[in-house]
Amino acid sequence: MTIIMNWTMKITTSPGNSIISGIGFGSFDRGNRVYNKKVMELFTNPKNVGEMENPDGVGRVGNPKCGDMMELYIRVKDGIITEIKFKTFGCAAAIATSSMVTEMAKGKNLEEAGCITKQQVADELEGLPPLKMHCSNLAADALKLAIEDYRSKQAGEPQADTSEEV
C-alpha cells in the first residue's frame, strides 16, 4: 500500500484491533475529547429510561455486533404520544440520542414524531462525533418503528415485525 498524505485524507485503521484507553479525566460539565457537554449530560442523566407496561407501540433496533441495541416504548392517546420510555445498550452517544429522541417526541402527534430525523436528533445534541452519526444514532429509527407498530396494531393487522437489522 502506498500512502499519499493530504490534509483531507481519511485515516482508516484495520477493524477490531484497538483497545482504547481513558477518554480523559475531568468532570463532565466541560464535555470531553469525544463528546460535547450536552451529550455527556444526557448520557450521565438520561431522561425517560425504563420499560413500560402494555405499551401501545414498541420499536426495536440494533445489533450486538456493533454494540448498540435499543428498545423504545410509546403510549398514545388521541394520536398524541403521551408517554415514552427507552432501554439502550450502547455507548454514550447511543444513550444520549435515545434520551433526546424521547424528549423530542413526547407530546407530539404521531405525524410530527414520525418525521423526527437522525440529523435533527444530532443537531439537538449540538453535534455527535462523525463516526457515531451512523452507528449509534438509532433512536429516530426506533421511534419510527414504534409508531409503525402502534399503527399496525390499530389497524387490527397481525403485529408487524418490530425489529430491524441495522
Binding site: 484507553s21 455507548c91 447511543a94 463516526l131
Partner: peptide, 18 residues
C-alpha cells in the same frame, strides 16, 4: 482511568479481535 476493548470507543466498529 481504565480501558475497554469495546468497539464503541474505538475508531473501528468491531469489538476487539482478541
Amino acid at each position: 482511568a481504565a480501558s475497554t476493548g469495546s468497539a464503541c470507543s474505538s475508531t473501528s466498529l468491531e469489538p476487539s479481535a482478541v
